[in-house]
Write a protein that binds this DNA or RNA. Structure first.
Length: 455
RNA sequence: GUGAUUGUAGCUCAGCUGGUUAGAGCGCUGGUUUGUGGCACCAGAGGUCGCCGGUUCGAACCCGGUCUUUCACCCCA
């Protein structure tokens, strides 16, 4: 005998958790559909060649690789072994578990380009796997809920992403959060403006930590990454900039006046806000964060990140525009924009804020209970009458003492127990006991159905 | 991947500088109560002290390894 256990970073979901997850997922699905997105699914595993090289070196390390079936060592020779992992891996593994939903989607778009109608809007809700070290809000298997649209450069999509996030959060009763938005082109422009053109990658990584470690440390890190002192000093006014939206935009227009790309980014951002205005929407919850820099290498335009205030969880949603994701699969020039909700993190947030509706679990409304075999038979005959009327009904299947049946109902939070004894059998009735009040009434079956349905 | 940290009953946790048979609360099972759950009282079951090895006359306790938990870094939903 061995004690069963779970692989690191994975979890079971019990009935309570499942009903809560369903609540979150239904809310998200509803919203995606309202905005015209269609659902697809892709396999849990992809060819390793599809996955590798898309997430950077770090990402490649975090991919779960699947050992080839059969004699997976048959192509490996001693030379490979002494050459190390790099040489052995491609010979023993040709598949991996998906790391996100965006890359499989890009693969899907390329493979189905002739069937799809562009612009194509799809959503996808499936687990992804990362061989990360687990910690709070970070798992090795977790769900993502992606919505992406490909085949258009329209900034209406960006505006709609903001609307969808707001809609979902409103439905989930989340009231204190920020949709941080920025544009990759602005970051590129900043790199140019401070005389470190092309280095926005390391620049992003460093300034992304501003909140966490402060300006002093960021300067150190920038210096370490090879940024000149004057470049860092040029960056300073940006960091200390505390202004409203239009103030930030005006500042950037001056700051980026020599960077065509940077100005384009500002322009795009302004257009998104303008579209929202035309839609009759406002900028509630939207926060233009010049320093927002999401790591993923493929973003080229808008970038989003959503943070719920006052909770210990990191970002619960993120996304952005990528101009050429399908390019690596042989279909260049397709622009896409998308974002993703992290259900597992949303779950943790709602739990921390106690925002789950209470009545989500107790589905059964009536338990038929009995004292003896005769009553058991009578109860069995009643089951279908209640169910036909749409009352969620069950019976304790093993013949057991009434005490046990009542305890069972109480534990499962079943609100009503229908007692079936000799008296009830005699006049074809049932005694309905309300478990929370303890009240009990003897009723005809029809009346019992009405009572329970009316509750 | 780097550095810490945790593991004792179903759950939450005690367990002294290493020393007889490892404890508590909650939960669970049965009873007081054969037409009625929650409350009360009584009784009972339940533990390879994460796993493997070492030190010792003797290990839940000390040492090594391993797995797991949590956390920071990296990165990220």
């Amino acid at each position: 005998m061995q004690k069963p256990s779970l692989p690191k970073g994975t979890r079971d979901f019990g009935p309570v958790q499942m009903s809560r997850r369903t609540y979150i997922l239904d809310t998200i699905k509803e919203t995606f559909q309202l905005f015209g997105y269609q659902q697809i699914e892709t396999p849990a595993m992809e060819n390793l060649s599809t996955l590798t090289g898309k997430y950077g070196d770090e990402g490649d390390q975090l991919l779960f690789k699947i050992l080839n079936s059969g004699d997976f060592l048959k192509d490996v020779n001693l030379e490979d072994l002494s050459a190390g992992t790099q040489a052995v891996l491609p010979k023993v593994s040709e598949k991996g578990l998906r790391y996100d939903l965006t890359v499989p989607f890009a693969r899907y778009v390329v493979m189905n380009r002739n069937e799809l109608t562009f612009p194509f809007k799809r959503y996808q809700i499936q687990p992804v796997w990362r061989a990360d070290r687990p910690q709070k809000g970070r798992y090795r298997e977790f769900y993502q809920c992606d919505a992406d649209v490909v085949g258009t450069e329209s900034l209406v999509c960006e505006a709609e992403i903001i609307l969808m996030i707001r809609k979902v959060f409103a439905k989930l009763k989340l009231a204190d959060y920020q949709i941080k938005i920025n544009n990759r082109k602005i970051l590129t422009g900043i790199a140019e403006a401070i005389g470190e053109a092309g280095k926005e990658g390391p620049l992003c990584v460093a300034i992304d930590k501003l909140d966490k470690i402060g300006w002093e440390k960021v300067q150190e890190e920038l210096a370490q990454r090879g940024f000149g002192i004057d470049a860092i000093q040029k960056l300073a006014p940006l960091v200390s900039l505390e202004s409203n939206l239009s103030g930030k935009l005006e500042f950037l227009k001056t700051f980026l006046k020599d960077s065509e790309t940077g100005l384009k980014g500002v322009e795009e951002l302004e257009e998104v806000f303008e579209i929202l205005d035309q839609m009759g929407e406002n900028l509630d919850f939207v926060d233009f964060d010049i320093m927002l820099a999401r790591g993923l290498s493929y973003y080229t335009g808008a970038i989003f990140e959503v943070k719920v205030n006052g909770v210990s969880i990191g970002s619960v949603s993120g996304g952005g525009r990528y101009d050429n994701l399908t390019g690596v699969f042989g279909l260049p020039g397709v622009s896409g924009v998308g974002f993703s909700f992290g259900v597992d993190r949303l779950y943790d947030v709602l739990e921390e804020l106690k925002l789950f509706p209470e009545d989500s679990l107790n589905s059964t409304k009536l338990l038929l209970a009995y004292f003896d075999e005769k009553g058991f038979g009578y109860a069995l005959s009643l089951l279908n009458q209640f169910r036909k009327a749409g009352v969620k009904t069950e019976i304790y299947p093993d013949q057991a003492k009434i005490k046990k049946q009542l305890e069972f109902a109480a534990k499962k939070e079943i609100p009503f127990v229908g007692i079936c004894g000799d008296n009830e059998i005699k006049d074809n009735s049932v005694s309905v006991k309300n478990l929370s009040t303890g009240e009990q009434v003897n009723l005809e079956i029809e009346a019992a159905i009405q009572l329970i349905q009316g509750s």
